[in-house]
């Protein structure tokens, strides 16, 4: 379905696409029909710089299962690192 499930969060960091690094200020997270990934529904993450055009965003579309695996991996890595940063 077109779920309209969208979450937005501010982030501090950078993303690289087409060989160029750019600062990012926000992540827009959705679970909906992807544009490119060959699955019915995907976790869609748009890393954006609020001051830049939307077509300069760095986009991800992950199958729901692989997204859950990735989240677990990210959480495990952060847990192993511990506090601070």
């Amino acid at each position: 379905m077109c779920s309209y499930v969208v979450e937005k969060t501010a982030v501090i960091g950078s993303a690289k696409a087409a060989g160029t690094w750019t600062p990012i200020t926000n992540a827009v997270v959705a679970v909906d029909h992807p544009f490119h990934a060959p699955v019915d529904h995907a976790l869609i993450v748009d890393f954006v710089n609020a001051g830049r055009p939307v077509n300069e965003r760095v986009a991800l579309e992950l199958s729901v299962a692989s997204a859950r695996d990735l989240i677990a991996s990210m959480q495990a890595a952060l847990d192993a690192f511990g506090e601070g940063g």
Binding site: K8, N26, V28, D32, F35, V48, V54, N55, R57, A59
Partner: peptide, 17 residues
């Protein structure tokens, strides 16, 4: 209105945001 010349996926990203 999100951008007349945007690619469809970029326009959809703007709509989501």
């Amino acid at each position: 209105r999100f951008g007349p010349d945007l690619a469809p996926d970029d326009a959809a990203a703007a709509a989501r945001a």
